[in-house]
Design a protein around this nucleic acid. Structure first.
Lengths: 195, 195
DNA sequence: GCCAGAAATTGATGTATGGTAAGAAAGTAC
DNA sequence: GTACTTTCTTACCATACATCAATTTCTGGC
């Protein structure tokens, strides 16, 4: 449903149906099955994705074969590998955790679209800035907080994801093992933590 | 020296002296002493900084009073708190590690300047994208690498900073204690590591 | 050059989280 | 429903890094 992307934009900026139509020619809808991999490490992908429905994750695999989740992308999230902007290869995989429907947008979509619809430009900048803020917060947590604190923070930040994704993925996002997360949860249960 | 900022821009984009003059009216030079704090947590700062000379660091202080360095900013780096774009308070301090000279730029400088000099816009987007890539890499390291690996990565990334900043700051950037970094270095010395 | 304070090193010990392994529980496919 | 896989839990032990404390080395100010 491309209209979902239109609604997303309408919530952020003033854009008419005509304006949207003028930029949507470059967009395509694509569906992915659960567990389907959308982008591989080393790819030079030419697209970013807007998630209409479903759930994606971006993850890397380290030298020991362990996965590390960099980002979840549920409905109404944009996900794109900024490495591809410079035609450099991706450093992570993108995979559909659930059956997912996305809008596929060329890497230069925002720049191009902003020519026709100027107010997209500040929106784009704002999105990038938010992404930076978000990652700064995450780095800060990784530097300063315990596993338990990070887990509580995760629950607050992604209340619905907590039930939607398997625990081992949450552990992978937090930078701990599934076993440790299980123990953290047990601890919290003992303290009568209510999620 | 505001000319340093001009040279920086000239390396990135096509900009004439006249164009630069047309946007530089909003810029000011400011000097900070070593150890001077430029921005406090909670501030709603209205400026970002371009470092002409010297070295800044951005850091947070956790609930136990421990500092955590989010970013170093040596010469020719831009540093600005994206939180301020939304008039939200800063989540970190910015401090001069050395006597430092900066160009002070209003938060909306890039947006405004891009009206007069359009090619600043894609440059700005590229800078933000690079910042995102950089932080993704750092998150990935924090999730997957040992203290030693992160230190080696740091040395490769910031060869000159390694000598310029005290070790306890590097430790704070890496997310370990100064004692641990000292031991990591000792280990590397035993393995005949040559920096 | 000397002194005070900061930074770095080192040793002894503590703790959070990891690794392994086994079994329980929950999904998923047929 | 049964079989099979995946996920989650639990227990035991291992390890990377933290903490505390005592020196040693470095640095800047006089």
């Amino acid at each position: 449903m491309i209209s979902q992307f239109k609604n997303y934009l309408k919530e952020k900026i003033q854009i008419t149906d005509e304006q949207f139509d003028s930029i949507s020619a470059d967009l395509k809808i694509k569906k992915f099955d659960k567990n389907e991999i959308i982008q591989y490490t080393g790819d030079i992908s030419k697209h970013g994705f807007f998630v209409c429905k479903g759930l994606l994750r971006a993850y890397s695999i380290d030298s020991k074969g362990k996965e590390h989740i960099l980002q979840f992308a549920p409905e109404n999230w944009l996900i794109s590998d900024r490495n591809n902007m410079n035609n450099e290869p991706s450093i992570f995989f993108i995979e559909a955790i659930e059956a997912t429907e996305v809008v596929v947008m060329p890497n230069d979509f925002m720049e191009q679209a902003a020519v026709k619809v100027p107010c997209l430009q500040p929106m784009h900048t704002r999105l990038l800035s938010n992404s930076i803020r978000f990652m700064q917060k995450r780095i800060n947590m990784l530097l300063s907080a315990t596993a338990e604190e990070r887990y509580l923070d995760f629950i607050k930040l992604y209340p619905n994801l907590t039930l939607r994704v398997p625990q081992w993925m949450i552990a992978s996002y937090l930078g701990i093992t599934p076993e440790s997360l299980s123990r953290v949860r047990k601890e919290l249960a003992n303290k009568h933590f209510r999620p």
